[in-house]
Design a protein around this nucleic acid. Structure first.
Lengths: 243, 243
DNA sequence: AGCGTAGATATTGTTCAACAATCCTGCAAG
DNA sequence: CTTGCAGGATTGTTGAACAATATCTACGCT
């Protein structure tokens, strides 16, 4: 596979400082200690899991006791999630789980198509290890499908796209994608049958990955574009069937 | 020019409800009565004006007295600006005006190129009035240039691009663009000579607008792409000259 | 009955004061 | 020169209180 991944020049004595960069990457794990962010994590999971149906209000009074935090901290968590698109804030009325519509589906997919396809199209050959996260996600979705855990398939699918975008090395693009996918997950919960929604894309993810491994970026981009169009159409159809 | 822009069907009696949408657009002005947002407005102007150099810390204690608001409200405004990219938050240390680097320039322009060019390329013929905001911005930049007010030229330039993106009718894209332009404005202030930075694009904006009026969207997109590449190169050059 | 309005109630918006947790500074010891 | 440890300053978090606003309810009017 890789021709030079095994070769590591042994550090003579204390002159090798390359490990510093790796450690610096984990620095965020230490600073992640904020009450508001922990509360936001809990609520984020609840919302993306679908435990809170769209339209439900998150009362400050109730959540304050349930989560054992101050009202201010809770409101700060609300604000975090609001800017992620997972909550909407109505003045003097409170925060609610947003009720997304078909307009939002079109809006979200339009952005996803443009951004993800451009990422793939602009790829250049780099170290093969960079595709490892994608491989892991594909395998995760495949094994989840065998067990019939379709929401796990959906999660692996999300991570695949997040990692795909990550190949562009753009912090802002990563952030934007995170928000888009979070909103998309919100939409998935109005669909009762996740199997029909996620199953078709397990194989297409693997096909996409293989094209990337072969360096056929233009073809991969074209395929991804059609992939997204189909996914959008399926979601819209499911939407009209229930709404 | 426009074949049907003058034609306006007269409202018979009370059946015309088109004004409702216009009024709805101003609704935000009424609901904008949040202290935190007002504080954020003040700080946003200060930052985008360049009054606060990158790296300076915004002390809670000092600003609380200067703005006559509670510490909580101030922190809320901080959060708002943080999510706009105009402030960075360091745990237990405070908020700072971010110090953007050449990496950020490349990152920002990559996203702008992809998004704005796609917007233009995907345009379809619609009511000519929709280009009115763009015409206003072009004229504003031209008249500001005559007076030599180059920061006003820069502002009009920003609004031109914001309105350009607005043609796509995507709330999420509008939001993303707002943040990208805000960060960009942050970068402009490290440049001492705004004339060299903004002057070349007054004419290019008008040329772009004329292409849009003629419906030549593909050519406009190509031109915009080169436009952005030049702008990025100029900003990077200015950056290296000072940094 | 239908409608609009005024007041009661509940929730959110904002402020304040206090304490806890953390970072920065300076200095002393090895 | 580096390490370890007070001291001071700043931020993080809490709780309570009051103000402002939306929702609900009841009343009076046509």
């Amino acid at each position: 596979m890789s021709s030079f991944s095994e070769i590591r020049p042994p550090a003579e004595h204390g002159t090798d400082t390359s490990w510093l960069r790796e450690v610096a990457g984990d620095a965020a794990l230490f600073e992640r200690s904020s009450s508001a962010e922990r509360v936001a994590d809990v609520l984020r999971r609840r919302i993306t899991e679908g435990a809170l149906p769209p339209g439900t209000q998150l009362s400050e009074e109730l959540l304050k006791e349930a989560l054992q935090v101050s009202r201010n901290t809770l409101r700060e968590a609300f604000r975090l999630l609001t800017h992620e698109g997972l909550l909407v804030h109505k003045m003097h009325r409170g925060v609610f789980v947003p009720e997304l519509t078909e307009v939002d589906v079109v809006d979200l997919y339009r952005l996803r198509r443009v951004l993800e396809c451009d990422v793939v199209r602009s790829l250049v050959d780099s170290h093969p290890d960079r595709l490892d996260p994608l491989r892991g996600d594909v395998e995760a979705s495949e094994s989840a499908a065998l067990v019939g855990d379709w929401i796990a398939v959906g999660t692996a699918n999300m991570r695949f796209h997040q990692h795909l975008v990550g190949l562009a090395d753009s912090t802002r693009l990563d952030e934007i994608t995170g928000r888009l996918l979070a909103e998309l997950r919100l939409l998935f919960h109005v669909i009762a049958t996740p199997q029909a929604l996620h199953e078709p894309y397990i194989g297409r993810n693997r096909a996409l990955l293989e094209l990337l491994e072969e360096g056929q970026y233009q073809r991969a981009a074209d395929q991804l574009n059609q992939y997204m169009l189909d996914s959008e159409a399926g979601l819209l159809a499911a939407f009209r069937g229930r709404g």
